[in-house]
């Protein structure tokens, strides 16, 4: 005899403890009485127990270094692209900042008077 389809539908919610308490009790008492559903549930639960026990794969220690080498390269390329778009270089930026600071200081002095 095959397992009852409406019981098979409850296998995952039961496994994940998502059944309301009354349904959970009904499910358990059905399993006690129905050989087909019990056999089917055992097959299901055993399979999932095996899946949850599989050893996890781990990356070699060099993985992080390789990713960081790539992200560093990307950041450098982005900076170069930004500099290429600007009509002036870093020296001009420095000079611009000095001029701006001087103008700000002058403005503060004027306002103070």
């Amino acid at each position: 005899m095959n397992a009852h389809p409406e019981m098979v539908e409850k296998f995952s919610p039961y496994l994940d403890a998502e059944l309301p308490p009354a349904d959970e009790a009904a499910f358990e008492s059905h399993l006690e009485d129905c050989d087909a559903c019990r056999a089917s549930w055992t097959e299901f639960a055993d399979a999932l127990a095996l899946v949850r026990e599989v050893p996890r794969h781990r990356l070699p220690a060099s993985f992080g270094r390789r990713v960081l080498a790539r992200t560093r390269g990307e950041r450098r390329r982005r900076l170069v692209r930004v500099q290429e778009l600007l009509p002036f270089g870093p020296a001009e930026v420095g000079l611009g900042l000095v001029v701006l600071a001087a103008a700000a200081a002058a403005a503060v002095l004027l306002l103070a008077h």
Binding site: V8, S12, F44, D46, A47, L48, L50, V51
Partner: peptide, 8 residues
């Protein structure tokens, strides 16, 4: 899960 249990 059902497919996996059947296969195993």
């Amino acid at each position: 899960r059902l497919a996996l249990a059947r296969r195993l």
